[in-house]
């Protein structure tokens, strides 16, 4: 009991209760697994019965292929799910007119924001973990190591954290949940689609100018960094480390030199900054902050806090 009280603060406790008491949660869990399961079964069907030879067996190569397909499908599903789950956490309370009462309690702004985010992430993690049995089909055929799978799941967690933080940010900034959801989806679309398209577009321009120039130019180009901002690009680089090299390369040339950075590393680095920034802004903006004499406040706050805890 003691440890749980330490880790589960009142806001988190309330969020967990509320989320798991609605039928929506179990329905969305069911729908999610159903969609992913159908994709998996559909893939097996296509490979086994509609293959070129007609009698192709489901081997480890196909197993790996299926893993890729599932992983991408999961990534897309996360992109759809995360904004819907997080973009209403603050604005929803505002619309239900419960936020003002929550803000007059002793809970700090960071507790409120982080607990809201954490409870949404927990639910998403539950869904992701619930899809593991589908992944186990892949293990029947082999071709994928456990380590790879763990990395992929950690990557999912990171993407959920990223989209979740953005959702919480827009939920804090916009009064209406609808607006927050739309803006979050918009930003998610930019991250998923725009970066990919931008990569292809700029890559084609750079490649054209590369071939028109003398061959003394470098083999690697900055263009690869753009792909590092794309979750799909980062995901592929997790499957195949050599993919990062290809992303930076303008033409098939010197395969011995390494990529300046693995795409997924860049992805994690860049978006960690985005996550921290959006959470910081959310925490600052959920309550009005006194700008005047803020130095004075900082000096006195710790002293007051200790006296407060003495009382309780």
């Amino acid at each position: 009991m003691n440890w749980s009280r330490k880790w589960i603060n009142p806001v988190l406790d309330k969020e967990f209760r509320l989320r798991m008491r609605t039928p929506r949660s179990s329905i969305s869990l069911l729908a999610y697994i159903l969609v992913l399961g159908l994709i998996a079964l559909g893939f097996i069907y296509i490979t086994l019965y509609l293959g070129n030879q007609g009698n192709q067996s489901f081997n480890s190569g196909a197993g790996r292929m299926m893993f890729y397909v599932l992983s991408f499908a999961q990534l897309v599903l996360i992109a759809f799910m995360a904004p819907a789950l997080t973009a209403g956490v603050i604005s929803g309370e505002r619309e239900k007119q419960t936020l003002s009462m929550l803000l007059t309690t002793q809970q700090s702004s960071s507790t409120i924001i982080l607990s809201k985010l954490f409870s949404s992430l927990s639910f998403m993690t539950l869904i992701i973990v619930a899809t593991m049995p589908i992944y186990s089909i892949v293990f029947l055929y082999g071709g994928i190591s456990l380590k790879q799978m763990i990395f992929i799941f950690l990557f999912y967690l990171f993407v959920m954290l990223l989209l979740g933080s953005l959702g919480v940010l827009f939920s804090t900034l916009f009064k209406r949940t609808m607006v927050a959801v739309i803006v979050t989806y918009g930003v998610a679309l930019c991250i998923f689609l725009l970066t990919g398209l931008l990569y292809l577009f700029i890559m084609s321009i750079v490649q054209r100018s590369y071939y028109s120039m003398p061959s003394t130019a470098t083999t690697y180009s900055f263009v690869g960094y753009i792909l590092g901002l794309n979750p799909a690009g980062a995901l592929i680089s997790l499957f195949e480390p050599s993919f990062s090299k290809q992303a930076f390369m303008l033409r098939n040339g010197n395969l011995n030199s390494n990529a300046p950075i693995q795409l997924w590393q860049e992805f994690v680095l860049v978006y960690s900054v985005v996550i921290i920034a959006s959470l910081w802004i959310s925490i600052r903006r959920i309550r009005p902050v006194a700008r005047r004499k803020s130095k004075d406040q900082d000096n006195q706050a710790p002293a007051l806090e200790t006296s407060a805890s003495d009382h309780s």
């Binding site: 509320l18 419960t98 007059t104 309690t105 007051l304 806090e305 407060a308």
Partner: peptide
């Protein structure tokens, strides 16, 4: 504005419109 946390400890606020969970 300077010590909102201390103020919150001392007040019970009931807004004109409110919702419940």
């Amino acid at each position: 504005t300077q010590h909102p946390k201390e103020v919150r400890k001392r007040i019970g606020y009931m807004p004109d419109f409110f919702g419940v969970y």
